[in-house]
Amino acid sequence: MGEELSALDIDQLKHLEDQLETGLKNVRTRKDQMFIDEIKELQQKGSLVQQQKEELLKKIDLIHKENAELKKVVEARRAEEKESLNPSHAISNGYDKLYPNSLQQSQSQPQHRAPSDEAIILGYSLKLKI
């Protein structure tokens, strides 16, 4: 600790100084090695974190793509539902463009009329043929 050095002669002080310098060199070497090891460990951790970041970015990109596809599917289903619920849309058979029709949905009204004589005769003739 530097105390009680007055009893030492020059050779002993020189020897003590050499020991202190060797010890200090060892301490500095050990400290430098610890810093080097810590730097390597932090670089490895940084590399691992970078890899995880890249993997997460890929997953995020994949999720965005899946969400876009799901959004398209949901929009298509909504359009289909809207179209099926909207009575103004007619089923196209290819002739609609040539012969447009304007059918409207209406509730059927019960019609109460007596069958004509001709219908009764036709009905009997159909029963006889069967």
Rank of each mutant, 00 (worst) to 15 (best):
G2P: 13
E4A: 02
L5D: 02
L5S: 01
L5E: 00
L8K: 07
L8V: 06
D9G: 07
I10A: 15
I10F: 15
D11N: 15
D11C: 09
Q12S: 05
L13F: 02
K14I: 14
K14C: 13
H15R: 14
H15Y: 14
L16H: 06
E17R: 08
E17L: 12
Q19N: 14
Q19P: 00
L20W: 06
L20G: 05
L20Y: 09
E21S: 11
E21H: 15
E21Q: 10
G23C: 09
G23Y: 10
L24E: 10
L24Y: 11
L24D: 12
L24S: 11
N26D: 15
N26W: 00
V27D: 14
V27T: 14
V27W: 13
V27K: 09
R28D: 12
R28Q: 11
T29I: 12
K31M: 09
D32E: 07
D32F: 01
Q33S: 07
Q33A: 13
F35K: 01
I36C: 03
D37F: 02
D37Y: 07
E38G: 13
E38H: 12
K40H: 15
E41P: 00
L42D: 00
L42A: 00
Q44H: 03
Q44F: 01
Q44L: 02
K45H: 00
K45L: 08
V49H: 07
Q50G: 05
Q50N: 10
Q51E: 06
Q51F: 03
Q51D: 06
K53L: 10
K53W: 12
K53E: 10
K53P: 01
K53S: 09
E54R: 00
E54P: 00
E55D: 09
L56G: 01
L56I: 04
L56V: 03
L57M: 12
K58V: 07
K59F: 08
K59M: 09
D61F: 03
D61T: 03
L62Y: 08
I63S: 06
I63Q: 10
K65C: 06
A68M: 05
E69D: 15
E69C: 07
L70N: 13
L70V: 07
K72E: 09
V73L: 14
V74M: 02
E75Y: 04
E75K: 03
A76T: 13
R78S: 11
R78Y: 07
E80D: 12
K82P: 04
E83W: 01
E83D: 00
S84M: 15
S84C: 10
S84E: 09
L85H: 06
P87K: 05
P87A: 00
A90V: 10
N93Y: 08
G94P: 04
G94E: 01
Y95R: 15
D96H: 04
D96N: 09
K97E: 12
K97I: 13
L98Q: 08
Y99C: 15
P100R: 03
N101I: 14
N101K: 10
S102L: 05
L103S: 10
Q104M: 04
S106L: 14
S108L: 14
S108I: 07
Q109I: 12
Q109D: 06
Q109L: 13
P110Y: 02
Q111V: 12
Q111T: 07
A114C: 02
A114T: 08
P115R: 08
D117T: 04
D117K: 09
E118K: 12
I120V: 08
I121D: 15
I121Y: 06
G123W: 02
G123F: 05
S125W: 03
L126V: 06
K127W: 05
L128T: 14
L128K: 15
K129D: 08
I130T: 10
